[in-house]
Write a protein that binds this DNA or RNA. Sequence first.
DNA 1: AGACTATCTGTCACTTAGTGACAACGGATT
DNA 2: AATCCGTTGTCACTAAGTGACAGATAGTCT
Lengths: 205, 205
Amino acid sequence: MTDDARLEIARLEVSRHAARLFWEKGFDATSGNDIAAAAGISTRTVWRYFRSKEACVEPVLKVSELRFAVLLGEWPKTESIEQYLARSVTAFVSDEAFIRDSIAAVRILAILHREPALRSAWLMACHAAEMELRGVIADRAAQSAEDFEVRLCAASITAAMRLVDEEISAAVINDGVQVSSEEATARIISAIRGAATLPICDAVT
Amino acid sequence: MTDDARLEIARLEVSRHAARLFWEKGFDATSGNDIAAAAGISTRTVWRYFRSKEACVEPVLKVSELRFAVLLGEWPKTESIEQYLARSVTAFVSDEAFIRDSIAAVRILAILHREPALRSAWLMACHAAEMELRGVIADRAAQSAEDFEVRLCAASITAAMRLVDEEISAAVINDGVQVSSEEATARIISAIRGAATLPICDAVT
DNA sequence: AGACTATCTGTCACTTAGTGACAACGGATT
DNA sequence: AATCCGTTGTCACTAAGTGACAGATAGTCT
């Protein structure tokens, strides 16, 4: 494992504690010392890992978005998005750690309206996901990741996923609505189909 | 004028100084005291106006994006986007204050790659523009601003405008490329057409 | 005009976010 | 074992950001 990857994992682990504390006590009431104590590291290391307090949640938000991009990265060219997700989402949502991170992320998204600082972290996480998605779309569209069309498509799809994530999170946490993973997947697919500016949703030749 | 509007203007004025300082000295090398001194107000007032140092640039970034949304808000239903912008952009880009703010915004966008904190401010500004755009699109599509379709369209178009803005800014400032306002408009129109998920770009009935 | 009210601003003391410098630790290499 | 190299903790420090209060400002009522 590379040093970079190990650092990413360490950051993610601290990020989980930060997300929990922000959810339990609120962003303002949580200090860098609190996060350090919860994660069992020194405060200095918290600030070495993250450039600001809000950035402490970026990793958990990022993995939730990114794993979806990674999933799409393994999407065979011969399948439509419906076909592929129908069979792959099950395995996707049965990973314990992923579920825990997802719940943490959903909780953060549900309090975005009260915590502007966390929204900026969320938008940064979406931006990271967008960068990742460029490669996936470039591959599927058989174009360069630098092409404007590809970048536009990645941005649109990321925006669609962001909207769906925010909406479902607010509904589940704030309004107590139950949303099955099939329903969530269906809404994401529909949003992606609507937003995709390149013909990547169906099988490509 | 309402109190809110006066406060917005005061904030924008401070924001212009902050943007200039961030451009001239860099984000880290500019302190809250520097911004206060440049704007001729007390440091305390800076922190009353803005929740963080990066948020100090949000207003200048926001007006650049927002004025475009406002312009689109006056777009007659009988015209296509090309027809409308062809005749309205001229008046748009002849406003002195607007030009100055645009230059300030462009400079900030051009240094995003070095200053992650400023990117989060930029994304927040785009988010504000997206919220505004919802109303415009709802009107043109004769749907509610709360409809998912409308919100998705606003998000996609905002993402498109964000990409074009970043690209043009980096080209102009970092690579010294010359971009005429016609060219910039053409690229924005093309991106909006590509990204719009509702049929709003042509005349609507 | 003058008193009343509400909002805004500056001052100052304070807390917490975030950095710089250096020493200590641990794991890999020779 | 000696050494190298990246990571962490400690500690002192700077700068971001807040709370409390008092003076200034502006609109309103009589």
